[in-house]
Write a protein that binds this DNA or RNA. Structure first.
Lengths: 211, 211
DNA sequence: GTCTTTTTGTCTTGAATTTAACAAGCCATT
DNA sequence: AATGGCTTGTTAAATTCAAGACAAAAAGAC
């Protein structure tokens, strides 16, 4: 299970496999073939097999894949077999929405605190998670070994805050601000650019209309 | 400017070009070359030129691209030159967060109503946008020519609601529920799967740690 | 226990995407 | 107005990615 030179396209698909396998597991399905999975997911069986074989052989000829085992293995690949402590910077509506989304917790992502500068929200709590003032962030990050931070603040402040977070020891940034962050290469980054997503939808709408 | 057989990879990048050009425009930059843009954006100049040439020649040899013109043209390609009426189904934290995000409005996406079944929120308003009961959705969609709907409800209800929306006349679905929707091919669809995004971040974090 | 069917892992082929290269054309300067 | 320097649009090469094919291996039937 060597990582490193796995293509981005494969990584993009892995969580979806994981989700489907989780559903199968809940339904009590014990085994599944790449063919059957490919029919459900609308991809080719070949692609599934090739994607998985980037990380090792998880199946057996004549049998297919054991759902529980494969689910667990993909979970390990994605780092879901360990607890990940997180914070959310920005306790506006978006930050609060993220804090409320209990799916993350189920996958081992534990949101430990939110941070904001607005006195209206500092001192309150969301979904049982405390909202602190940003001035307390550095101490919190260091004391609690926080490696993942979600950024849900206006785009003007995002680059500065992101760099500060990295200096504090954060290793992964989940960026919701509509801007690109110039982070050191050793820091993981994943953007959620909602406006761009909506624009793509708009394009698709237009393209379908023109048919 | 023919659309139709443009690859998904190109569409994925277009909104980002649009965002950068918007920033340049705000800063008063009049012209830019593909080389300069590529340096800022971390892609190759060749890719920028080829992406744009899918839609037509917007530049001039020896000069580059006029920022305002190119910005406007990409906007047209993405369908941002017209107003798009939207609704949000689900007025929980996520639905409310989307409703509050005024960037969409700036791009011509006008959120006209939210819908929910929770009596706690029905009758209230978010960011000046009314929250109605789901039972009023059909009439509203038809009366107001709503073509785009965001779905921010639990995954169990999402597929049913999505299909109902399509029957009502909705042509594009922006899906925030962590499930895949089986929609007719003539309906545009764009998923925002936050849990999958977070898993990808987790993978990247793990991969960087292992270096 | 043997034979057939199933299904993986991998190899090969083909397609799509990205990068590189370059002629043609425009700008700017003298 | 002619020349040199840029920069595009486009063609060609290289790379990456996806699909197809198939031998090897296990399961299941008889």
């Amino acid at each position: 299970m060597k990582t490193g030179e796995i293509s981005a396209a494969v990584i993009r698909r892995l969580p979806r496999y994981y989700r489907y396998l989780g559903e199968l597991l809940n339904r009590g399905v014990v085994r599944i073939s790449s063919k059957e999975l490919s029919d459900r997911m609308g991809v080719t069986a070949s692609q599934i097999r090739q994607d998985l074989n980037n990380f090792g052989g998880f199946g057996q000829q004549g049998y297919g894949y054991n759902v529980e085992y494969l689910y667990s293995e993909i979970g390990k690949i994605l780092g879901l077999d360990q607890k990940n402590m997180m914070i959310i910077v920005g306790a506006g509506r978006l930050g609060q929405a993220i804090a409320n989304y209990s799916d993350f917790e189920k996958r081992g992502f534990l949101i430990r605190a939110l941070f904001d500068i607005d006195p209206e929200v500092v001192g309150t709590s969301v979904h049982g998670i405390p909202v602190f003032h940003m001035s307390e962030m550095e101490k919190f990050v260091k004391d609690n070994q926080i490696y993942i931070a979600a950024i849900a603040i206006p785009k003007e402040a995002a680059p500065t805050v992101a760099n500060e977070l990295v200096k504090m020891g954060v290793k992964a940034i989940w960026n919701f601000a509509p801007t690109d962050l110039a982070l050191p290469r050793e820091v993981a980054q994943e953007n959620v650019h909602l406006t761009e997503s909506l624009m793509r939808l708009s394009y698709k709408l237009k393209a379908k209309e023109e048919e």
